[in-house]
Amino acid sequence: MSERKPGWKQIPRGGLILEAGNAAQYLTGDWRSLRPVWDPEACSHCLFCWVYCPDAAILVAEGKMKGINLDFCKGCGICANQCPRTGALTMVTEGSVTAQAGS
């Protein structure tokens, strides 16, 4: 992840959470080791992925697939598995994506 998390000198004592309602700030997408890559050209907008995604990470607007919210996608691959089209959703390793971004 690009954003550096706080070190032991910065975090509150004993794992205390000092602000109310900040769970939304915890980006569970950090856990992902596989990433879905969406190809809009191959997509038929059937929205099976949107129905099946357990993390509500498929972004939809006006009945069309718009992309994936990588802040909360945990990379389970259910979307790619149930997608009826070939090549619309492909799972790639996070490592390959970050290596590409770094090169």
């Binding site: 032991w8 000092l18 109310a20 950090d30």
Partner: peptide, 20 residues
């Protein structure tokens, strides 16, 4: 000043907690 005590800390925070 509401706080949470005893929250889950996984690979990304447990170690910092123990270091502290």
């Amino acid at each position: 000043r509401p706080i949470t005590v005893g929250a889950l800390e996984l690979q990304d925070f447990y170690f910092e907690h123990k270091r502290q």
